[in-house]
Design a protein around this nucleic acid. Structure first.
Lengths: 343, 343
DNA sequence: TCGTAACAATGAAACGATTCAAAGATTTGA
DNA sequence: TCAAATCTTTGAATCGTTTCATTGTTACGA
């Protein structure tokens, strides 16, 4: 049993024409019950497996969708991937996953690969500037949906999350629980996500006349960076401290939390409330469970597939940009304040 | 430019035969310099992209390798995937990644998909019992290499890590730094990894006549599970505590660390040393940087691809099981002890 | 100048599915 | 019972490559 059975073998074994076998596979309604059973039995007996290459060659397109993410290790993307796979499966497609690892050349290799494979379409959260390549793809009939990046609706469809709204949500929550002296901790504001979240926070703070927002720059977005910001705060002494801290992501927040709790004098949330962003797994299991902003990753993945399906149907020049609003997750780290005056 | 250019279009455009274009692509040495240039220019001008389906159909096999992991979100697998992709790229293949998410039916779907795609071979860290399917695959000429699972060399090739050795390494390190009252924290010992690590630790402890090993069962392998074991320890009171704790993974260790540090009386590593397993990113940035056992994930990924290549060449009935030894990573959490008597 | 070897280029056949016009079988209604 | 309508089945053509036997070209020594 060296080479696997072809549709022709099945046809012979069931004593029907190859076209009939194909019909059983693709248009079962066109085939009589009796014949169908014979063919199915033959398929089973020979262990026939459809050769996707041949099908694709004839049909002109595949049943697979390419998905290129920045980092599969990032829970955000992992979750998007899961949702996309499930949504694709529902419509009978499979997802080919590529991990660019923030590396433009890996990204480019995947685009090549997917193009050779003639995927139905491409979902991508781009690293480099790939707009030219994506334009070429579209001309060749391979539509693209940008993921986690807002795109001009004249050019592409996209799904993204409103970071400004997320920032607003976080700051508003701190304000609503009575905090007035807020601080924002975030990496270089050249990162769009960071800038947007800060902007949203500013918007919220402006709504309360007696509230202030201090911006603490961090070196990167890691636990260590958070810890050094935290240490800096601790050294300031009690009088000069914020009573609510919003970190641009959960790693930073966990770092800040480590510094503050190690003092054994400052208490979270009584003295300082703390909220992060992303709602990573570790947020729940922090020493003080961390409040956070959760991004609707499942919706992102599902919607990306839906937009791609739309692109495949209508070939209009107009596309859709779907923007999701993130969600507040309240945990212990932003519990009620101790003695601060409420607004 | 609706349908993309075929090799025939290229041949016309360059005024050569289709076979020549194919040779330029696959056997450049067989073609004269002049012709090659003409063809390459034509390819460029038409934006020709090889149709992989057609190539595959004719060649009988693809240039892709299927890789199914238990959980792409797990840093262990992420790293294995990276290494496998890089190794595959070196030999001109691409990796199609599937994430089973510990779900047997997803796993099965991926096997179907990869089989329809006629992948060259399959790397898999299996969820369910897939041996029958894998046997079928092999009969059809698709070899399999098991990843992170030891397999009978008469049946499959495999790459795995010696968990017993890892357990030994961790316990030996605690002993070498002067600890004698050891504890092992680990989930249900029905999980092979947990059992093996415990076994290795036992081996090390037997080497020191005055050393003891206590086994503390945890409910699962999470931070929370670790914390509840830690709390239990804290309640015991100082006299009755171990002086070195080995956790079956880093999450557990981080949980234990949280409990111990929250007491503000027990100090790590002076009172109790703590070592985990896996060396996840968070290990470095824990309050007390966590010592751990690092698995050679890059080697796993690379070797899996190499074994697959071997399988593709020789069709002998014998396979290879490569077992790697993990590596000790020493950080602050197992620094020198305070007053415990050394052996 | 010729014969031969080495090298280049050719183009038809094949891979395994889908498609579709045409042929064959069956049902329906009168 | 027959013609028309409907339902099944057939099998050749097709997709875009690779393969390989064949033909064409060039270089070289005798």
């Amino acid at each position: 049993m060296n080479r696997s059975a072809s549709i022709k073998d099945v046809a012979n074994h069931a004593s029907v024409a190859v076209g009939t076998v194909s019909n059983v596979l693709n248009y079962p309604d066109r085939v009589s019950q009796r014949t169908k059973e014979r063919v199915l039995r033959a398929i089973d007996e020979l262990g026939f497996i459809r050769n996707d290459a041949a099908r694709q060659l004839r049909a002109g397109h595949s049943r697979t969708i390419g998905l290129i993410v920045l980092d599969v290790g990032n829970p955000f993307f992992t979750s998007v991937v899961r949702a996309a796979e499930d949504a694709a499966a529902l419509q009978g497609s499979a997802v080919l996953l590529g991990d660019s690892g923030h590396n433009a050349s890996r990204e480019s290799n995947y685009i090549d690969l997917f193009q050779e494979q003639r995927v139905q379409g491409l979902l991508i959260s781009p690293v480099g500037d790939v707009t030219e390549r994506l334009d070429l793809l579209r001309d060749r009939g391979i539509p693209t949906v940008l993921v986690d990046r807002l795109a001009d609706e004249d050019k592409y469809s996209s799904v993204s999350v409103d970071d400004d709204a997320g920032g607003y949500l976080a700051a508003r929550h701190l304000l609503d629980t009575g905090r007035r002296r807020l601080a924002f901790v975030g990496g270089p504001t050249s990162i769009r996500q960071v800038a947007d979240r800060l902007q949203g926070a500013r918007r919220a703070v402006k709504e309360e006349p007696d509230a202030t927002l201090e911006v603490l720059d961090s070196e990167g977005q890691t636990v260590l960076a958070g810890r050094s910001v935290g240490n800096m705060l601790v050294e300031r002494g009690r009088g000069d401290l914020p009573d609510g801290i919003f970190c641009a992501n959960d790693l930073l927040a966990l770092g800040v939390m480590q510094s503050l709790t190690m003092t054994h004098t400052l208490k979270i949330p009584e003295d300082i409330a703390l909220i992060g962003y992303d709602d990573i797994d570790f947020a729940v299991s922090a020493v003080v469970p961390l409040s956070s902003i959760r991004q609707p990753t499942e919706a992102l993945g599902r919607t990306a597939i839906e937009l791609l399906a739309e692109e495949l149907e209508s070939t209009g020049p107009r596309h859709r940009a779907v923007i999701f609003t993130p969600e507040l997750v309240v945990r212990q780290s932003t519990g009620p304040a101790q003695g601060t005056a409420a607004g």
